[in-house]
Simulated assay, not measured.
Amino acid sequence: MTSRRIEAERQGRRGETFAMVWLRLAGWRVLARRQRVGAGEVDLIVRRGRMVAFVEVKWRATAADRDLAIDARRLQRVARAAEVLAPRYVRDGDDMRIDVLLLAPGRWPRHITNAWQP
C-alpha cells in the first residue's frame, strides 16, 4: 500500500469517527461501524427510534471536493451491502434508509438523508 493510500485510509477513519460523534449528538445510536459484506461496505449503521440508517461517510480536503464525493455507483454498492445487512439490524416495524454524510475541514457536515431511492 502506498503512503498516499495509507494516509487516505487514516483520514477516512478519522472522518468516520467524527461522523459517529456528530450523529450521536443528533440523537442517533451507533449500531455498527465498517460492516463489509461481499456486496460492498457500509461505514456506519445507526438507529434513532424506529429508523435505521446505513450511512456512507466521505471526507474530502475541500468543500468543493466534498460535494462531488458521492455518485450513483458508490451509492448502489452501499445499497447492496445494506440489503445484505438489513436482517441483522432492522426489526419488524422499522424503517430503513441510506444516508450520506459529507465532511470537509472547516465546514459543517452535509447530511443527505434517504440518498438512495432505487
Rank of each mutant, 00 (worst) to 15 (best):
M1W: 02
S3V: 13
R4Y: 10
I6L: 14
A8P: 00
E9D: 08
R10E: 11
Q11T: 06
G12C: 01
R13N: 08
R14D: 14
G15A: 07
G15V: 05
E16Y: 09
T17A: 12
M20S: 13
M20H: 05
V21I: 12
W22C: 05
L23V: 04
R24A: 11
R24Q: 15
L25R: 10
L25W: 04
L25G: 08
A26M: 10
A26C: 11
G27I: 08
G27V: 07
R29E: 11
V30H: 06
V30F: 06
L31M: 11
R33A: 12
Q35D: 11
Q35V: 12
G40D: 07
E41H: 15
V42L: 03
D43C: 06
D43A: 01
R47M: 02
R48Q: 15
G49I: 11
V52S: 03
E56Q: 11
V57H: 00
V57P: 00
K58T: 06
K58S: 08
W59K: 10
R60G: 09
A61W: 09
A61R: 15
T62R: 07
A63S: 14
I70H: 04
L75M: 13
V78F: 04
A81V: 03
A82N: 05
A82S: 10
A82V: 02
V84S: 06
V84Q: 08
L85C: 02
L85S: 01
L85M: 07
P87C: 08
Y89H: 14
V90C: 03
V90N: 03
R91L: 13
R91G: 09
D92E: 13
G93C: 09
G93Q: 09
D94S: 07
D95R: 15
M96I: 03
R97G: 03
R97W: 08
R97T: 07
R97Q: 09
I98S: 05
L102N: 00
L103W: 02
P109I: 06
P109G: 12
H111C: 05
H111T: 02
H111V: 05
H111L: 15
I112A: 10
T113K: 11
T113N: 04
W116G: 01
P118T: 01
